[in-house]
Design a binder for these strands. Sequence first.
DNA 1: ATGGTAGCGCTGCTA
Length: 258
Amino acid sequence: MRIVTWNVNSLKARLPRVEEWLKTSDADVICIQETKMTNEAFPTMAFEALGYESAHHGQGRWNGVAILARVGLTDVTMGFGDLEDPYEGDARLISAMCGGVRVVCVYVPNGREVPSEFYDRKLIWLKRLREWLEANCSPEEPLVLLGDFNVAPEDRDVWDPAHFVGATHVTEAERDALAELRAWGLVDAFRELNDDSGQYTFWDYRGGDFHQGRGVRIDLLYVTPVVRERLTAAKMDRDARKGEKPSDHAPVAIDITN
DNA sequence: ATGGTAGCGCTGCTA
């Protein structure tokens, strides 16, 4: 089974590229972030025509997360439930059972500046995510927590650590928050199979960053031990960042045995 | 050094 995360930066602007990509990607589950649309506007029929069921937690002009699956899609949840959301009103969390795996799709807040109230609430959001996992899931079950985390876990995950000193995405507190998530019972699927630096998932549109190789690895797939045992591949699709009107993120896929 | 581009939607915000 192939499970993918992709921040598409507007599903309206990106639908032609997403449809084209789905036809050749052989993906069974696709988690999308930043749909930037309402539930009414979500193209359920277009995905159905390609063989995918879908669930969308939309907001409107910002955020929005979705799950597409061709291996079944049940038990959908949206948001933090009873837990207080430090970004109340934003659509950043959706989960579903797909092919026997609990799939949890997240769009972690950006945080904007360090320090700022937005950054503080980003840290709380990540803490809340761990609390949500504790309350609703088990590290013993097949589970993938994936999405745009807006945090680069290590210095080897950014093109130039010196460039990011004092910036969001690389602070000790953000990296500690990711470590707290892993401590619940998760490992970074990409890092289980790859030690390389220079493996990125996001390149800013500005300054020709993609062509200059100025990227960061912030789109992650965290898996529980039972999924780790089934893991056979993990890879970025850099080609999806090329060409006409690309998203600023590349999709990342993992393969697990059935 | 505070740039630069993209998306939404119509003014400036968000990333």
